[in-house]
């Protein structure tokens, strides 16, 4: 793992690309879980004890 403070432009670009890909992956996963929950539970999504 390179030190962000001393990395070359190529390394910085690669790191930025990896970070964006990771962020996109996480966002997609969160959205998937949210929509799956809505689809599976439908109108019953709010019908649960607190």
């Amino acid at each position: 793992m390179s030190d962000p403070a001393s990395e070359s432009p190529v390394e910085a670009k690669a790191r930025r690309g990896r970070n964006i890909a990771l962020a996109l992956g996480l966002v997609i996963f969160v959205v998937l879980v949210f929509v799956v929950t809505i689809v599976r539970l439908g109108a019953s999504v709010a019908n649960r004890p607190f």
Binding site: S2, A14, G17, R18, I20, A21
Partner: peptide, 8 residues
């Protein structure tokens, strides 16, 4: 070499 997202 630095890993690009395409490598993953």
């Amino acid at each position: 070499a630095p890993a690009r997202w395409q490598d993953f």
